[in-house]
Simulated assay, not measured.
Amino acid sequence: MNHTWLITGSSSGIGRALVEQLLARGDRVAATLRHPDALSELKARYGERLWAAQLDVNSTVAIRDVVHRAFTELGRIDVVVNSAGYALFGAAEEVSDDQIDQQLRTNLVGSIQVIRACLPFLRAQGGGRVLQVSSEGGQLAYPNFSLYHASKWAIEGFVESVAQEVAPFGIEFTLVEPGPTRTNFGAALVSPPVMAEYEHTPAGDVRRAVASGAFPLTGDPQKMAEAMLEVADAQPAPRRLLLGSGAYARVHTALAERLAALERQREVAMSTEIDSSHL
């Protein structure tokens, strides 16, 4: 059965791979991106099955306008994919205030506002799916990516909550968590001026690894898109979809360490309750 999809950030990477695969299999796609001409070849090939609109997710007004037009003109949208975003690459002390605002406006506030704009339409049509692209960096953290991680951990918390709020309306969410992927991600990293004080720290080590190519980008965006197509039909929707063998290993280790640390604090946690004799 063919579906209609709304995909933000569809000009490159996983978003572009999704658009290509969906159109090839016969689905209809509403694709948003900052430069719609980037999809002109696909538009020429697939015609009305590709609905494209310019959108900068930093503008809440534009988000609401584009989402309204997409649902109104296409009638129904079954799956919404939030994939627009970028990464600020620098130690917390190095990045500027404007860069922090831009990181959070794009990855966090932009994603939240796309979801908020879609919810009334999804609720009115009796349900739908939202695939929120997060990252393995929504469950663990690397030095030199502190603001990027802040955006990803935050959007995961938002989704965990809103998914419970709208479950009675048949709206389901999946957090998609890719590991390092062979896209233009590295070239798109936004880097502030480097402080010499961080040269011989874990932040400097990560910088050198990315610059030298030692930071492995093993994820295949086409295979990741295929996995997302499959999960969109899964019943019930899994809350998370982790993509990449390295990501699996690293998140597994991080969660095991957090659980072990939690268990070590059990006695302290239990000791802080109000004494039963005072209830």
Rank of each mutant, 00 (worst) to 15 (best):
84 A>N: 02
21 Q>D: 06
61 V>S: 12
93 E>K: 04
168 P>V: 07
17 A>M: 05
2 N>Q: 11
201 T>C: 05
43 K>Q: 15
8 T>A: 01
219 G>H: 03
5 W>L: 08
132 Q>Y: 00
102 Q>E: 14
217 L>K: 14
43 K>E: 12
13 G>E: 06
95 V>F: 00
19 V>A: 05
79 V>F: 01
238 P>L: 03
138 G>D: 08
190 V>Q: 10
184 N>L: 10
217 L>S: 08
173 F>R: 05
230 E>T: 10
31 A>R: 04
32 T>V: 00
156 E>M: 01
154 A>V: 03
71 F>G: 11
258 R>N: 12
205 D>R: 13
50 L>Y: 05
130 V>Y: 02
84 A>Q: 00
77 I>H: 01
107 N>K: 04
125 Q>C: 03
76 R>G: 07
225 A>W: 01
203 A>M: 05
196 A>Y: 02
253 T>N: 12
48 E>G: 14
150 A>L: 03
131 L>D: 06
228 M>I: 05
56 D>E: 09
194 V>R: 15
66 V>M: 06
173 F>Q: 07
175 L>C: 07
100 I>F: 02
61 V>G: 15
133 V>I: 12
258 R>M: 08
171 I>Y: 03
182 R>D: 15
117 A>W: 10
50 L>P: 11
113 Q>K: 15
226 E>Q: 13
261 A>P: 00
206 V>K: 06
31 A>Y: 04
30 A>C: 06
39 L>F: 04
68 H>M: 11
